[in-house]
């Protein structure tokens, strides 16, 4: 199987994630879509690592995982606070700041 297909897959995942961010309303889901995008990047890293035959990309993907984990912590904290005060996790409800 052609290795470049992994790149295409990664791109497709990234686009799916981006679309998800734009169209979904639930903050958790939106955030999951972001995670999907990060993982798309990971896939790309790993694939490129394979192509170039060095380990840089793989190391990068490890770092990304850690960072993504941190991001989850912070993100969930924010979303939960948000949910507590508004009884809703819809990002569309958080639209007081405008104009």
């Amino acid at each position: 199987m052609d290795i470049s297909n992994y790149i295409y897959l990664s791109a497709i995942l990234f686009v799916i994630g981006a679309i998800g961010v734009v169209v979904r309303r639930n903050a958790i889901v939106v955030f999951m879509c972001v995670e999907l995008m990060l993982n798309a990047a990971n896939l790309a890293f790993v694939t490129f690592s394979r192509i170039h035959g060095n380990l840089g990309g793989q190391i990068a993907s490890f770092f990304t995982m850690v960072v993504a984990a941190c991001e989850v912590v912070v993100g969930l904290a924010i979303i939960v606070t948000m949910y507590r005060s508004r009884r809703s996790a819809s990002v569309d409800d958080a639209s007081l700041l405008k104009r």
Binding site: V22, V30, V91, S95, L96, K98, R99
Partner: peptide, 16 residues
């Protein structure tokens, strides 16, 4: 100002 409608999703759309 109309761009600045307060919805995260449309901001993300703009970024995209």
């Amino acid at each position: 100002k109309k761009i600045q409608n307060g919805y995260v999703r449309s901001y993300a759309l703009l970024m995209t």
